[in-house]
Nucleic acid binder design. Structure first.
Lengths: 233, 233
DNA sequence: GTGACATAAACGTCGTACTTTTCGCTCCTC
DNA sequence: GAGGAGCGAAAAGTACGACGTTTATGTCAC
């Protein structure tokens, strides 16, 4: 799962970012660049660039004469898809998954309502296709295929909303869906009710039924939250 | 408004980030590190660190033998507060302000509903205090004071929701409020209706009235959107 | 025209030297 | 003994020069 040799920088960034975002480093812990350089067997240059990126994500703070301090969780840029990925790989995945799903339950219904008003013919067609794809992969251990269609479906809705901020949440949703598929034990096939709701949502959007689209999306979100309640502490 | 001498890195990052995020650089434009180093009169080391940060925000992409390419808007990490600040200082501020306000109108009502259920006594008190502060500064050209209370108010609501993702939107909301106060000509005092709504919202939260809190917040959002329609192209 | 190959341009990495900030300690004064 | 001034060192910040690595592009032969 690690990117093999896409640059030293990427490798160190991923390792360190994962370590911090996953919660392995207590807030306030101080790292030294020299130390890190030695530990990862790279030059200080590389470490400094990594630290700068981590700093831009508010994961750490670098101060002279003191070192690189790990910042408390509340200050992180938790909307950075990279940070989300790191956190979902860590120990507080359940909490993270839950708060992200609550966010989805707030945003996606509104986005779906807007999509019903603004979606183009192509977007409607693509949406229907995705819904059908979900139906087709909803049985028989085809979780990967289902996930792909699910992600595409929600991405289209968010894009069709016509709002840039919603659209850019597509990556976040993708991370959430991928995270819950990959990290959570899901013996069984996806919830049939959810599949049906997606099909009906595609219909509602195609028919320009904003209210219906919003309501159906809310139901999907409620279902997702309930699923979390069942499968997580 | 520029940070005087808080490090060369910060200065160059701000200048370049602003230039790109504000829309002065067309997507696809290629920059060279040497060129930038010369232009800002800093070493390549500094430029490289800046580029790395910009790259982590998906504002640019750095490829060997090619240079640093400016990415299209759709790929930017538009939830990064820094990026939001840069964009709000640029030419498409109206569009940006609108999409952010739509986002708020989706998120804040839900957050307020949760806040009504979860807010502590301290948070309720602070909320009331902010609302009173808004009332006190709502007349007589005290926009800065009003802004400070407004930001604090919304931050408390988002924090009190108990959801981390909502809480972290506090920075985004702060940028929006600050942006619309500083960049938009506001001869007159804030809308009295909005002030009243905030006071009532504080009450609703204190009384644990989730439905009321949600409804009032929606009204605030609608008002903000309407205000944008009036004052923006 | 198509393929392989050479070339060079740009970023990527490294090591070193020097500068700047600032923590923490000592020492002096009151 | 308390408090402040001054000193020294530790760590990040900056600069520079060299070399490595990738890869777009042009060239040459077929």
């Amino acid at each position: 799962m690690t990117t093999p040799a896409q640059g030293l920088h990427t490798h160190v960034l991923d390792a360190l970012g994962l370590e911090i975002a996953a919660g392995d480093c207590p807030p306030g812990l101080v790292l030294r660049t020299d130390e890190l350089a030695q530990r990862f067997d790279v030059s200080r240059t590389v470490v400094r660039e990594v630290v700068r990126v981590l700093e831009s994500m508010h994961l750490v703070e670098s101060r002279r004469r003191v070192g690189v301090t790990v910042r408390p969780t509340e200050e992180w840029n938790v909307y950075d898809p990279q940070v989300i990925r790191w956190r979902l790989a860590g120990s507080d995945r359940p909490r993270q998954l839950r708060s992200l799903t609550v966010l989805r339950s707030a945003v996606e219904p509104v986005a779906a309502g807007l999509a019903a008003r603004h979606a183009t013919a192509e977007q409607c067609a693509a949406l229907t296709e995705c819904a059908l794809g979900m139906v087709a992969t909803s049985r028989g251990q085809q979780l990967e295929g289902y996930l792909r269609h699910d992600i595409a479906f929600h991405r289209i809705v968010l894009n069709a909303s016509g709002n840039e901020m919603f659209a850019r949440l597509g990556d976040v949703v993708a991370e959430v869906l991928a995270g819950r598929t990959h990290h959570q034990v899901m013996f069984e096939d996806p919830d049939p009710a959810a599949v049906t709701l997606h099909v009906r949502l595609a219909e509602a959007v195609r028919e320009g039924d904003a209210g219906g689209a919003e309501r159906l999306t809310k139901e999907i979100a409620v279902g997702a939250l309930h699923e979390l309640d069942v499968l997580a502490p």
